[in-house]
Nucleic acid binder design. Structure first.
Lengths: 342, 342
DNA sequence: ATGAAAGCGCTAACAT
DNA sequence: ATGTTAGCGCTTTCAT
């Protein structure tokens, strides 16, 4: 039989209330007694019963805020699905989730939304942060005020968050490089379509790929396009590129802009001679995996990222403990036309 | 505020006890009243609070048995890890798990163990069943006696189980075929190493691969080896094959026997000229992904299979409902040297 | 600072 | 067949 608060109370000769106060640092208990109680709890190997805890807390549910750059980006819809799934599973635990979606990566806009969410009196927040000084300090100030933060999909330096949940960007680039290398026969010219060299994590995908392609000297990286995560720009830039540089055989789409780029290829009727490598399983990619234009895509488990983010945040608030690992890295999975999973 | 048993009791003008009895079909309640109560519950959109349910049931925990063919098979160790992980997470819900491991796929042996487990008075069982008439009827008899069954990793026909949790074998074969096709340049000769043509699900992996390779006429399947899921046999057979047929360029390992086969390749110093494709991320495969001998391996998420099996079984017993889907298919994921996840 | 007791939603044993 | 009540482990309010 597991040890309960009752057992500790008996062993320490105090009431259950005092044990609860001591163990959860609620204050109003003699420091010596508290120490004594904690010692006994440790000795007995006490583990609080999450179920009972949740049932008792049920009256005033934990309030969580979610701020995701999902508008116009189908990838983040899956992250949201994961969040909602976790929310549904945690329903009985007493949980209250307020989701706000925004478009794009403008720091000002994000900062504004963060403040709005913060003022709704939440216990924790899930966010895909942009690397910006003001965002950074706003998040740190929230954390100091007891609002716990979990970063989902995008990491950010110098923020004292509870956890980062997302992929290893450099590794995803390496993985892409290896697929490109093993599936390319003979000489080939490659173009990279990225968001912006300034976006550190996306740039890691470029670097990772480059490092592996050094081992495949038959593949020449000869163009870099910055499309700013914008489908329109990507569409026009890819069109321009393909008209201008007829030697391109391979397109490597690092992030947002894939849908626009694929459309450009179709309009120019270049499906036959081109090979494309992408990330994530968004609708346009799935279509072109089936058509054969996209050879492979690398999935980073957006659903799991959402689900784990919410679970982690919830548990760390409920248990008042920081998660075991600060960086929770989701698996990278290669998908071809036969093992698509959405 | 969610609706509770109390609300239903008030609306139906009966006591909470009666509502509980009616909703859970415990008997001893007037059929008309029961129907009335159920109608009200449905109308109010009542969802039982799992947390409270678990807390109340906590005194007599749910007892589960697990029968896994894990001995000598590192793949199944990961399935077990998943089971243990779920067990740990469900600890507070009141759960009791008895795990028995056996070696190989002998029906007699499995039947014996099933009976032993059944007699320990369990509420449910997780099993990797072998396709055998006696196993089939024993499982069905258990199910009729109220012991719920979840099949993990291996499906079985004509058994009225709660769920099958595992991969789609045919699809995994197709996925392998596509990788082999896209990463092979020029003419190539392929050898298939399988357990036995009689094992239906493993044979599906062969068929799936063959169907895709028809689109790659440069690849010729010229040898089939049956290694009976035995590392020793596989080792010797692969050695024999490589000595005898010098034209082989590609080895496709369908299942158990991979470790032995890889060892044979190393001993014959054939790493340079051969390319190998495998399933799962077992230690030997990971080593040879890194060494470059194995081009890619297909993972079927053994950890998730274990974890989901236990969760599904537990939930269906606790909630007295059959799971939403009877076949829970785990994702197939391609792994190369850069995105290995174990 | 500490104790006592009510209550979270549900189950199960005991009454009627 | 139905109602009443104690209790699962924990939190929280109210006394002391």
């Amino acid at each position: 039989m597991p040890v309960t608060i009752k057992d500790i109370a008996k062993a320490a000769n105090v009431s259950r209330g005092t044990v609860d106060r001591a163990l959860n640092d609620r204050g109003g208990v003699n420091p010596d007694v508290a120490a004594q109680i904690k010692a006994i709890a440790a000795e007995l190997g006490y583990k609080p019963n999450t179920i009972a805890k949740a049932l008792a807390t049920h009256a005033n549910p934990i309030r969580l805020g979610v701020l995701i750059n999902s508008l116009g980006n189908p990838f983040f819809d899956k992250v949201l699905d994961g969040i909602r799934h976790a929310q549904e599973n945690l329903r009985d635990f007493g949980i209250n989730v307020e989701i706000r979606k925004i478009r794009g990566y403008d720091p000002q806009r994000q900062l504004h939304e963060i403040k709005l969410l913060r003022d709704t009196d939440i216990d924790g927040m899930i966010i895909t942060p942009v690397s910006d000084e003001k965002v950074r300090s706003e998040l740190n100030s929230m954390i100091r005020n007891g609002i716990q933060v979990v970063c989902c999909n995008m990491d950010i330096d110098d923020v004292n968050y509870q956890a980062y949940v997302g992929c290893d960007y450099y590794c995803s680039g390496q993985t892409a490089g290896e697929i490109i290398g093993t599936t390319t026969h003979g000489e080939a010219n490659l173009a990279v379509i990225t968001s912006s060299h300034a976006l550190y994590y996306h740039e890691m995908r470029v670097k990772g790929c480059e490092s592996v392609l050094q081992q495949y000297p038959n593949i020449h990286i000869c163009e870099y396009i910055e499309a700013g995560d914008d489908e329109d720009i990507s569409y026009h830039e890819v069109k321009r590129l393909l008209k201008q540089n007829k030697k391109i055989d391979i397109l490597y789409f690092v992030t947002g802009g894939t849908t626009g780029g694929l459309q450009a290829i179709h309009e120019l009727d270049q499906e036959e001679r081109l090979k494309v490598y992408t990330f994530d399983q968004i609708p346009a990619v799935i279509d072109d995996l089936k058509s054969g234009l996209v050879v492979a895509t690398i999935d980073q488990q957006p659903f799991a990222q959402g689900e784990i983010s919410l679970r982690t945040l919830f548990e760390s608030i409920l248990s008042r403990q920081t998660p075991a690992r600060k960086r929770i890295i989701t698996e990278l999975n290669i998908k071809n036309r036969y093992n698509i999973s959405y």
